[in-house]
Computed example of a mutant assay.
Amino acid sequence: MPRSNRPRGRKAAGDDASELDIERLMFGWRRAETRRGVSYTVQPISAANARKSYVCPGCGREIAPGIEHVAVWRADGVLGDEADLAGRRHWHTHCWRIA
């Protein structure tokens, strides 16, 4: 009989890793990037979660609902996290890569 290589142990109760995994699945993988000495938080937006239209600051064209893109905001703003989130912009993924 073949041996199973899957772990059989259970995670401990109160483990927050499952909550984090669910958040990442729902909202994508946030990452930090630095451009020209400024730190930014980059949040991928899946096509399923893209429900509104936006204007990309990189090319000036519309990001239609249902198009995968990224939301970008400063990670090191002096006015605080709420002001940084209010100043976020939605970019085409390609436009952000070449910016």
Score class of each variant (00 low, 15 high):
residue 55 V to M: 10
residue 33 E to F: 09
residue 54 Y to C: 14
residue 23 E to P: 06
residue 29 W to N: 01
residue 48 A to V: 11
residue 49 N to S: 15
residue 56 C to Y: 11
residue 49 N to Y: 15
residue 48 A to P: 02
residue 35 R to I: 15
residue 27 F to D: 04
residue 33 E to T: 12
residue 52 K to I: 13
residue 39 S to D: 08
residue 42 V to M: 01
residue 42 V to E: 00
residue 45 I to K: 08
residue 42 V to S: 08
residue 25 L to D: 15
residue 50 A to N: 13
residue 50 A to S: 09
residue 43 Q to D: 09
residue 39 S to R: 12
residue 55 V to T: 13
residue 36 R to V: 08
residue 53 S to N: 08
residue 42 V to L: 04
residue 30 R to V: 12
residue 50 A to V: 00
residue 51 R to L: 03
residue 27 F to I: 06
residue 38 V to S: 03
residue 48 A to Y: 06
residue 57 P to T: 04
residue 26 M to H: 08
residue 29 W to I: 01
residue 50 A to Y: 06
residue 54 Y to E: 13
residue 39 S to L: 12
residue 50 A to H: 07
residue 32 A to S: 13
residue 51 R to V: 02
residue 38 V to I: 08
residue 48 A to G: 07
residue 27 F to A: 03
residue 34 T to V: 14
residue 49 N to I: 13
residue 57 P to V: 11
residue 44 P to M: 05
residue 40 Y to P: 08
residue 31 R to A: 02
residue 56 C to P: 06
residue 26 M to D: 02
residue 32 A to Q: 04
residue 41 T to G: 02
residue 46 S to P: 07
residue 50 A to G: 10
residue 33 E to S: 14
residue 40 Y to C: 07
residue 43 Q to I: 12
residue 30 R to W: 10
residue 42 V to Q: 08
residue 36 R to D: 00
residue 24 R to S: 10
residue 23 E to G: 01
residue 54 Y to T: 04
residue 42 V to G: 07
residue 57 P to C: 04
residue 38 V to K: 03
residue 34 T to E: 09
residue 49 N to L: 15
residue 47 A to I: 02
residue 57 P to N: 09
residue 52 K to M: 15
residue 27 F to H: 09
residue 56 C to F: 10
residue 44 P to W: 05
residue 32 A to H: 14
residue 33 E to M: 12
residue 54 Y to K: 12
residue 34 T to M: 11
residue 35 R to S: 08
residue 49 N to P: 13
residue 23 E to Y: 02
residue 27 F to Y: 11
residue 36 R to A: 15
residue 43 Q to K: 05
residue 34 T to K: 03
residue 37 G to M: 15
residue 29 W to Q: 01
residue 40 Y to Q: 11
residue 36 R to Q: 01
residue 39 S to F: 04
residue 48 A to W: 04
residue 46 S to W: 08
residue 50 A to I: 13
residue 35 R to D: 05
residue 40 Y to F: 14
residue 48 A to K: 12
residue 32 A to G: 13
residue 24 R to G: 02
residue 29 W to R: 03
residue 40 Y to I: 03
residue 34 T to Q: 05
residue 29 W to Y: 05
residue 34 T to G: 08
residue 27 F to G: 02
residue 30 R to D: 11
residue 45 I to N: 00
residue 56 C to G: 05
residue 43 Q to G: 10
residue 49 N to H: 13
residue 31 R to Q: 05
residue 32 A to L: 14
residue 45 I to Q: 04
residue 56 C to V: 14
residue 53 S to R: 04
residue 34 T to A: 00
residue 43 Q to V: 07
residue 53 S to E: 11
residue 52 K to A: 11
residue 42 V to C: 03
residue 28 G to H: 00
residue 35 R to V: 13
residue 35 R to W: 15
residue 26 M to L: 11
residue 47 A to V: 00
residue 30 R to Y: 11
residue 54 Y to P: 13
residue 33 E to G: 06
residue 23 E to N: 08
residue 29 W to V: 05
residue 29 W to C: 00
residue 31 R to C: 01
residue 30 R to T: 10
residue 32 A to V: 12
residue 38 V to F: 06
residue 44 P to I: 06
residue 24 R to A: 00
residue 41 T to V: 06
residue 47 A to P: 03
residue 40 Y to L: 01
